[in-house]
């Protein structure tokens, strides 16, 4: 590609070549698309796993410590090592990327789900019981809505973290996304691709963060302050 030419340009190379960007909008768009898809799948699966785990940790406190221990240990494993570790098992590709990405969301999500449920005032739960709410109905219509701000704060954190980690996954050749731009740019010593990949992943993270703040406002119309994230 632009590799040899830009290598010759050396230090005179501009940070962004708009002409190149213009000619490669399709590639850039599909990298963004892949990045979003990998992120949403990871956080979606992460939530599907974390909600029951968080409920268990909250309802039966003796499970809290072991669950934090396991998810915390997963969170501590360096991302490159985790993705690399999976390569012999699941190969180079999407599955490897997603398993790694999901495992990093668990600690963040479980902690925030437990903190959210803990923040539901005891009087409110008493009142719900007094109105004849069963355990299931109370969870869905009372506990979860009141816990929503804290849970969404966790989702925001998980999304932002995952967007950063997707770039590591593509480094080991798993998944694709904006990291592919970064590694191609690095290999070809082509600044535009490197900068574009980096800037776009930060922009993507910021955009998702703002979008989730709006979601939070929408699902908590009573707009309780105390969204601790």
């Amino acid at each position: 590609m632009a590799g040899t030419a830009s290598a010759l340009l050396g230090d005179a190379q501009p940070w962004l070549q708009w002409g190149w960007i213009d000619r490669h909008l399709g590639e850039i768009g599909s990298a963004i698309g892949q990045h979003i898809e990998l992120t949403l799948i990871a956080v979606g699966i992460g939530l599907a796993i974390s909600l029951p785990l968080g409920y268990v940790a909250w309802r039966w406190k003796r499970w809290e410590k072991p669950l934090y221990g396991i998810t915390g240990a997963l969170f501590t494993v360096p991302s490159l090592a985790l993705f690399a570790f999976l390569i012999p098992v699941t190969g180079l590709g999407r599955t490897t990327a997603e398993i790694g990405l999901v495992s990093y969301t668990l600690l963040i999500l479980v902690r925030n789900i437990v903190a959210g449920l803990d923040s539901v005032p005891a009087e409110v739960r008493d009142a719900a019981r007094g109105l004849g709410y069963g355990a299931g109905r109370q969870l869905v219509f009372v506990d979860l809505p009141l816990a929503a701000p804290t849970i969404i704060a966790g989702v925001r954190l998980a999304v932002v973290t995952t967007i950063g980690l997707v770039t590591v996954a593509s480094l080991v050749g798993a998944g694709g996304g904006l990291g592919t731009l970064i590694s191609l740019g690095q290999q070809n010593n082509f600044r535009t691709e490197v900068v574009l990949g980096a800037v776009l992943s930060v922009v993507l993270a910021a955009a998702f963060d703002v979008a989730l703040v709006l979601v939070e406002r929408a699902v908590t119309p009573w707009s309780r302050r105390g969204a601790r994230g």
Binding site: L157, V160, T161, I163, G164, L165, T167, V168, L171, G179, I182, S183, G185, Q186, V194, G197, A198, S201, V202, A205, A206, D209
Partner: peptide, 10 residues
């Protein structure tokens, strides 16, 4: 947290 380490590195 939003800054991907890889991006900062390259």
């Amino acid at each position: 947290r939003a800054l991907p380490a890889i991006a900062v590195l390259v």
